[in-house]
Write a protein that binds this DNA or RNA. Sequence first.
DNA 1: GCTGAAAGAGGTGATAG
DNA 2: CTATCACCTCTTTCAGC
Lengths: 151, 151
Amino acid sequence: MDDIDRQIVICLGEDCRRSLADIGGAVGLSTSAVNERIRRLAAAGVIRRFTVDADPEALGRGIAAFVFVGLAADADEAAFRAVAAGHPDIVECQHVTGGWNYLIKIRVGSLAGIEAFLDGFKRRRLIARSETMIALSTVVEPPFRPKGEAT
Amino acid sequence: MDDIDRQIVICLGEDCRRSLADIGGAVGLSTSAVNERIRRLAAAGVIRRFTVDADPEALGRGIAAFVFVGLAADADEAAFRAVAAGHPDIVECQHVTGGWNYLIKIRVGSLAGIEAFLDGFKRRRLIARSETMIALSTVVEPPFRPKGEAT
DNA sequence: GCTGAAAGAGGTGATAG
DNA sequence: CTATCACCTCTTTCAGC
């Protein structure tokens, strides 16, 4: 993990379809050397996956909201995590410090989708209370990768 | 934007280096058709970029925190947005409903990095008050894409 | 760990159906 | 949209430093 590795990861983050020769020119290495480094970075898990950043709006998930979640005292936290991990609306779910237990970011198609999301969790008694903040506009956002079963 | 387009985007989200023939086999189309659709999706902005999901820990940004930001009444909001957009620590910055103005997610290498981040913004009078929640563990997280040299 | 060259896979863009 | 083909860039490998 030297400085050239970092440059390569940044390069790939901007456009992972650039040719090895191109990247080599940018970082001052031959194609073979770049190829070997990328292989190593992927094998080591520094690069987790080659993916795309998609437009949530175009995929029917134009509304983002942050939901703070409080679990019940006797909550099955493992069950909550399992459901959250597989939930199609959830873009991010972090266990956090402070008065709430989890901070969840969801992406849905409409405001009704937010209500449906909360209903689903509350009906299954996975969360006890929540507070929701809706995103009005975006200044910076990480890549969006749609979930789903795609053989 | 039909169902096959959606499947293709999901496919590419899982591994954007799969061959066109592979994807064609998965969605039931020829390589030519898949090639044409991907070109169209990229041109239309449904696919914004081909990128990588990297491991923040390996890149010295193992700590995630959420910072709620309140701007001063006379704040220069455009300046705040410009600085946020280019800030290397900021992974996400959304204008949100509720008592705070912005919700920012940062990734830094240490707790000291959080303090330095807050100091930087407060010294420049870009934010008036803030509240910080630190991520203890991650259940779901979007792709992480390291930013280039401070620009 | 790197280079450079050679071999091979796969993307690209045409064709016709 | 499918099927095929020729073209050709890019990836991959390997000998050698």
